[in-house]
């Protein structure tokens, strides 16, 4: 069987890559949810979202400096999962309030350019915080497996977090690390929680109504600005959760990681259908698979091009994505 030229084919490693892809996909999906929620409600591509994620990773990194080693760290991890998402959430709410809210009535490109500006500001903050070279967390928060720590050390020597994709491609002795289990244990409740919130709660229905027709929502007595702020808050929470899990899994962060991962996540949102929550999940998984399998079978450098190519093709031919959302009713 001649499937590819770049890597030795073995069923075991293929399934490992697929598994890695699904795990990364879950991460992308978490971040993608932030993009899709905000876009669904105010039709803004929030360029800054990826950098909020990055700052969440930076915060996690700093908090880990105070982390106790395993097994005491097991108390610390829930603390991380509480503090970082809340901080990211507050950051997101603040950005919305200061930058986007005054521009509600402006043409679409104006808040878009502002979002670019916010992204740059956040990147600068990240750069001030951790400098221009990647940083790795030293603490062993999770039970170390021989593979995990040697992977850590080698990741430290890698120059950019892109090269973390090489870490993904290295065959693992064990299928799931503890970081992966944490990932699954975080992502699934988070997404389920969101789905339940949006479908069954009053505020969730208000969010859906506002996304479908903001003027009508106002006429129902819904405080649309509050709903928008809540959406940003939720997006921030997901960015924060993704940040904790990502940092504990990949263990290396750098100040530009928000840009790349943000674009992957946004592509995921578009693939699945921007504005659609299950779409973000589906898209995340697909992009994760492309990311993982692509790194192995077509070489890390072209993975980027592949994913961006996917974004372009989708935007040109099927902007509504797979689980297509209708275009908002024209006012």
């Amino acid at each position: 069987m001649d499937l590819c030229l770049f890597a030795e084919f073995s069923f075991q490693s293929l399934s490992q890559y697929v598994l890695n892809g699904l795990l990364m996909g879950a991460l992308f999906a978490l971040i993608a949810l932030g993009y899709t929620l905000v876009y669904g409600i105010i039709e803004l591509v929030n360029f800054a979202h990826g950098d909020v994620f990055m700052l969440g990773c930076v915060l996690t990194y700093f908090l880990c400096m105070f982390a106790p080693e395993y097994p005491t760290s097991l108390i610390f991890i829930p603390l991380l999962l509480l503090i970082v998402p809340i901080c990211c959430s507050l950051l997101n709410i603040t950005i919305n309030y200061l930058v986007y809210r005054p521009l509600r009535k402006a043409p679409r490109l104006v808040p878009l350019v502002s979002a670019l500006g916010v992204s740059f500001v956040l990147i600068n903050v990240g750069q001030m915080a951790i400098g221009t070279s990647p940083k790795s967390i030293q603490a062993q928060l999770l039970p170390s497996e021989t593979n995990q720590s040697s992977a850590n050390r080698e990741t430290e020597n890698a120059t950019r977090s892109n090269e973390a994709s090489e870490e993904l491609t290295r065959p693992r002795r064990s299928w799931l690390t503890w970081a992966d289990i944490l990932l699954i244990g975080t992502v699934i409740p988070a997404m389920t929680g969101l789905a339940l919130l949006v479908k069954f709660t009053k505020i969730g229905k208000a969010m859906r109504a506002t996304a479908q027709n903001p003027i009508a929502a106002r006429l129902m007595g819904i405080n649309v600005e509050f709903v928008i702020a809540l959406t940003f808050a939720l997006g921030g929470i997901f960015a924060g959760l993704a940040a904790v899990v990502f940092t504990l899994k990949i263990t290396t962060i750098d100040y530009l990681m928000g840009y790349k991962n943000g674009l992957y996540a946004f592509t995921a949102a578009v693939v699945g259908g921007v504005g659609s929550i299950p779409g973000a999940v589906l898209g995340g998984i697909l992009i994760g698979l492309i990311y993982s399998l692509g790194a192995v079978y077509i070489g890390g450098a072209w993975v980027d091009a592949c994913i961006f190519g996917t974004l372009i093709i989708l935007l040109v031919f099927r902007p509504s994505g797979i689980l297509g959302t209708r275009v908002r009713e024209k006012v």
Binding site: V99, V110, S114, F120
Partner: peptide, 14 residues
């Protein structure tokens, strides 16, 4: 650097 460019964008748009 980044912050200055970012602020230019934000403030100009505003």
């Amino acid at each position: 650097r980044y912050m200055i460019f970012g602020l230019v964008l934000i403030l100009m748009m505003r």
